[in-house]
Design a protein around this nucleic acid. Structure first.
Length: 776
DNA sequence: CAGTGAGCGAGCTTCCGCTTGACTT
């Protein structure tokens, strides 16, 4: 007989807790939400108070059957999902789906996974908070209405299969607007003057680096200044020392972990989460999807012991951090090692590195401030009223810096705080060299994945569990691409003063190189424009913040959830109807010019399959010609000449083995077609000037490669082959692919065995695989 | 790192937030 059934959200958590609770308790996991709206329809009854129609999620059917059985046997069912809006809703959905009663149900919550915290929770049960559940329901219904009414409008007006939503559309907007800012940005330059001095003290030679605090906008002004410095004398006129201190950063949340792993380890957001999940599942760290910077008392005590033992008591300073993040719900602890006395773990190299980062950050957060001394040195110039200054920084006590220093996204790392040589006021200096170098202002930085997460968190948009999936969604929809882009060479002027002589030269630097940054695509820009034009309220940066206030009122019991939804939906839906009716196709059409041969207009626009060029007017009697843009082209930058090139495909290359070869550009890039087979061009091949010889090379290379992947083929059945593909061996039959059952050696298959496999419906190709997982 | 290669006829696409596996063609 089962006494107690406890249900938590995560299986790893279930395992840990079961150990704390003893034999009278069985602990199971719900694996997150168990019921949701059906994804193939709106599932909200708009006419009747917006009542949502929930169903057990398809992948949870088995689980619910199992939990139902256990719940029936149990005396008491403890619903122990997280203490936040979603967690409360999960408990309620479990209550409904399992057919529980108030009498045998207890709702409990805990923020840390310790024996005392859980025992305390068991001693303080409560009932489900239906106001909080209503707030979640409002959130769920609002997101569904916005997403499922806006997306179909995009299919009609822009392009099929697109999507829009409260979170993803703002993410895209951030990236599009940043790109616009960058385009608008005018880089200006100014001359920065630096100097290196020599001096002697107690028979030793030293060097001192200094900088002129002001900059010269004009080259002539910089030149004049250096001119005045010819034969000048330099004296240290003042030394000012100031104490300073630095404090450690708070422990990791999901967002700050993603940022630091990106800066320090070069991890993508998705990789950080995958590795963190592995560490969590093997019990090495606490939960990785959290917005809290809080550490449990147990954790702080462990940190105390570890710091005292390794670094000594004077390095210890325990702290409680509080969250400043908008909309934080703090259902979990901060991300920290489970055992703080373990500074390293076993595992893959990624796991080791991420763990080390988490360990250092957590330990440092409980360590003493660093004590610094900052020095500002002023240097007089005998021939000029301006002064040079030199800055220095000395660490008097390293404190937490012994372990960890937070990274920055700031790319302007020019000013370094050096260690200064021994100096005193009145010291005479000899100029070794003075240079005035032209420096350029930088445009705002493009977003990296992690920087975008940081911005979204600041705006209160999205949750720890959705940051990584959102980034993958906007890329999957083709709104955004993550890319490296080449920089360009820029010339700059340098004027030097050395040995009382002035010289000038022009040097060059590589600038503007971008690594793994997010760029908007033509589609992203167009969809953003559409949404800004017709639905500015939804993609307003404050939209989420505003509705969150109302969700809070619902949670407090001050507002009815469907009242709130109704107030939103009325105007929103009218706008949808109005736009459906009155807005035309939103294709971003732009006239590029005329075809010199026919005189017809050439346009660039977004078509059903993406950006394309069009030869001839849409309304003209003769059907216009279309050609898709190449991957490296954009609607904004394409020229008439490039457009004309696109219409030159398919182009005849000649014949090979008595069959024609043509080159064309398809969905997946340029290809050669020969004997109704396709051969992709390499990146280095230019489709505009590829010739027959090279095409034959490509054909031969592909044939050889295909040959290698053949495991078996049969003379009697030319349309059946056993091939070795990306997921291992498979059978191709009449152009369709079939999987080979587990435990079957592909080498051993004969024709009959193959046909048997092909005829078995279990091995038939799936309709379409809905890929949920992120693109890397 | 296998294969994909349209353009008007048919049916489908889509949201956000919780959570892990199973393992595609």
């Amino acid at each position: 007989m089962l006494k107690n059934l406890v249900i938590v959200e995560s299986p790893a958590k279930a395992k840990t807790i079961e150990g704390f609770l003893g034999k009278d308790f069985v602990v199971k996991s719900s694996y997150g939400h168990v019921r949701d709206l059906n994804k193939n329809q709106l599932s909200v009854d708009i006419e009747n108070g917006f009542v949502p129609q929930y169903e057990v999620s398809p992948d949870k059917k088995k689980l619910i059957t199992e939990l139902k059985k256990l719940a029936k046997e149990a005396e008491i069912v403890w619903l122990a999902s997280d203490e936040d809006r979603e967690g409360e809703a999960i408990s309620w959905h479990l209550y409904e789906a399992l057919g529980l009663t108030d009498a045998k149900t207890r709702r409990i919550v805990f923020h840390e996974i310790t024996k005392t915290a859980i025992q305390k929770a068991i001693e303080n049960p409560r009932q489900i908070d239906h106001n909080l559940v209503s707030a979640q329901q409002a959130r769920r219904v609002l997101d569904r209405l916005v997403g499922y009414e806006l997306s179909p409008l995009l299919w009609k007006k822009v392009k099929p299969s697109l999507s829009a939503g409260r979170v993803q559309s703002v993410a895209v907007r951030l990236i599009v607007e940043r790109e616009e800012e960058i385009k608008q940005f005018n880089s200006t330059s100014a001359f920065r003057v630096t100097a290196v001095f020599n001096f002697e003290q107690d028979g030793q030679n030293y060097q001192l680096q200094a900088e002129l605090p002001e900059r010269f906008e004009k080259e002539s002004a910089a030149h004049d200044f250096l001119e005045q410095c010819v034969e000048a004398a330099y004296t240290i006129s003042n030394i000012e020392k100031k104490p300073a201190r630095k404090s450690p950063a708070p422990p990791f949340t999901t967002s700050t972990l993603q940022q630091e792993a990106s800066r320090k380890l070069g991890f993508s957001v998705a990789n950080t989460m995958r590795v963190a999940q592995q560490l969590y599942e093997s019990g090495k760290i606490t939960y990785m999807r959290t917005d809290s910077v809080n550490l449990s008392d147990t954790a702080i005590n462990m940190a105390k012991d570890a710091i005292t033992e390794t670094y000594g008591a004077k390095y210890l300073k325990t702290r409680k951090y509080s969250t400043k993040t908008k909309g934080a719900q703090e259902a979990h602890e901060a991300i920290r090692p489970t055992y703080l006395n373990q500074s390293e773990v076993k595992g893959s190299s990624d796991e080791k590195r991420l763990y080390e980062l988490i360990w250092k950050r957590t330990i440092a957060s409980q360590m003493a401030d660093a004590q610094l001394e900052k020095t500002l040195v002023t240097i007089d110039i005998s021939t000029n009223k301006k002064h040079f200054s030199a800055k220095g920084e000395v660490v008097l006590f390293d404190g937490f810096l012994k372990v960890y220093m937070e990274g920055t996204d700031d790319e302007n790392g020019e000013e370094s705080n050096n260690l200064l040589p021994p100096i005193k006021t009145g010291q005479q200096l000899d100029l070794k060299e003075m240079t005035a170098q032209e420096r350029f202002t930088r445009h705002p930085a493009r977003y990296s994945e992690a920087a975008l997460v940081k911005k979204m968190e600041e705006l209160g948009i999205g949750r720890p569990s959705t940051y990584a999936p959102t980034i993958s969604t906007v890329q999957k929809r083709g709104y955004v691409v993550k890319e490296d882009r080449d920089g360009f060479v820029r010339k700059y002027k340098v004027i030097s003063l050395k040995k009382d002589k002035i010289s000038e030269k022009t040097a060059s630097e590589n600038t503007g190189y971008e690594k793994s940054k997010l760029f908007p695509t033509d589609i992203g820009i167009l969809v953003n424009k559409f949404l800004c034009q017709y639905f500015d309220g939804i993609i307003d940066y404050n939209f989420t913040a505003n509705v969150e206030k109302e969700f809070d009122e619902i949670a407090e019991g001050q507002k009815k959830w469907n009242q709130m939804i109704s107030e939103f939906y009325g105007p929103f839906h009218r706008k949808i109807d109005d736009t459906t009716e009155n807005a035309g196709k939103f294709s971003g059409e732009k006239l590029l010019g005329q075809d010199p041969e026919s005189g017809k207009n050439i346009f660039v626009k977004v078509g059903r399959y993406g950006p394309m060029v069009q030869l001839g007017d849409t309304e003209s009697e003769e059907k216009p010609k279309f050609a898709g843009l190449r991957k490296d082209q954009s609607m904004e930058s394409i020229t008439l000449e490039q457009a004309l090139d696109l219409f030159s495909f398919p182009r005849m290359l000649g014949t090979y083995e008595d069959k024609e070869m043509t080159v064309a550009i398809g969905r997946f890039g340029p290809y050669v077609k020969h004997d109704s087979k396709f051969y992709s061009l390499q990146k280095t091949d230019d489709p505009a000037d590829i010739e027959a010889e090279r095409a034959i090379e490509l054909i031969e290379a592909k044939r050889e490669k295909d040959q290698k992947s053949i495991i078996k083929e049969f003379d009697k059945a030319p349309d059946l082959k056993v091939l070795d593909g990306r997921y291992g061996p498979y059978i191709v039959y009449k152009k369709k692919n079939y999987k080979i059952p587990k435990g079957t050696d592909p080498e051993s298959l004969d024709l009959d065995a193959c046909l048997k496999i092909v005829e078995n419906p279990d091995n038939a190709p799936k309709k379409r695989f809905a890929r949920k997982k992120s693109a890397k």
